[in-house]
């Protein structure tokens, strides 16, 4: 589904990713761990299409297409979803208006007519249950005045509405208490299917108690330095990132 080969990325002349290789297949959950500043969020943003970065080398293919050639919205409409570490507040745009636009833009991309309003509202109600959102979310502006936990739940809610094939969750666990974390993880687990995949980026192992990954990768200094099964996360938790730094090539 996603194949990244020797990806090199820099921002303002500073190299962040220095030859990253990763393959994700349908049905898989990949966790990417690593200390702060090693390029985890850069990877997520580059896949989503953020234009702040310069691609120095390597290639990224998604469903057989050259991903780097696609615009941000084309990637989204091809099934890529980025769950933001810091979801953006958009005062004045209601959740309903926002999601309806998003759902219908995607439908238009795939040659479908807009979703009838009734069907859309039913879908919203159904997906709200999934992340246990009970408030009058629909009339509120996107993320405006939401608590940290609400913002993260809202990301998962949007993911549920848009039904992506490849979801990248960028530190969705940061700033969440254990209850909120469970709700978020539970939402993700319910959305797992044989034909979709997740890349879960996290600093801590704790999220992976609830979202069980098939693979764990450790990103350090712009490269994946270790890959393994879910037990690698536990090993990291136990030994800390210092352990890696000692092992990593300079």
């Amino acid at each position: 589904m996603l194949f990244i080969k020797d990806l090199e990325v820099s921002i303002e002349g500073k190299k962040i990713l220095k030859g990253l290789t990763l393959e994700v297949k349908p049905g898989e959950v990949h966790a990417i761990m690593g200390p702060n500043g090693t390029g985890k969020s850069t990877l997520a943003n580059v896949i989503a299409g953020r234009d702040l970065y310069e691609i120095g080398g390597g290639k990224v293919s998604y469903k057989g297409k050259d991903l780097l050639e696609l615009s941000v919205e084309e990637r989204a409409n091809e099934g890529i979803f980025l769950g933001f570490q810091y979801p953006v507040e958009i005062p004045g745009v209601s959740m309903t208006n926002f999601l309806r636009t998003a759902v219908n833009e995607r439908r238009a991309y795939h040659g479908l007519d807009p979703m009838p309003a009734g069907e859309f509202l039913r879908m919203m109600e159904e997906k709200k249950q999934l992340v246990e959102i009970h408030s009058q979310l629909a009339s509120r502006s996107v993320n405006e005045g939401f608590s940290g936990g609400e913002k993260k739940r809202n990301e998962i809610f949007q993911m549920a509405m848009l039904e992506p094939e490849l979801a990248i969750l960028d530190e969705t666990d940061s700033g969440l208490d254990i209850d909120a974390l469970k709700v978020v993880a539970n939402g993700v687990n319910k959305l797992r299917r044989p034909d979709n995949a997740f890349i879960v980026i996290t600093h801590y192992q704790r999220l992976l108690d609830y979202i069980i990954p098939d693979f764990v990768h450790v990103l350090f200094n712009g490269r994946i330095v270790r890959s393994g099964g879910k037990e690698l996360a536990l090993e990291l938790e136990e030994k800390g990132y210092e352990w890696l730094k000692a092992q990593a090539p300079a």
Binding site: A48, V72, E73, A76, N77, F81, F84, V88, F98, L99
Partner: peptide
């Protein structure tokens, strides 16, 4: 905000409008 909207599949024009 533009980037956020576009990652949800909303094209540049529609995102500006919103």
């Amino acid at each position: 905000a533009m980037f956020y909207l576009r990652t949800r599949g909303i094209g540049e024009h529609a995102a500006r409008m919103l």
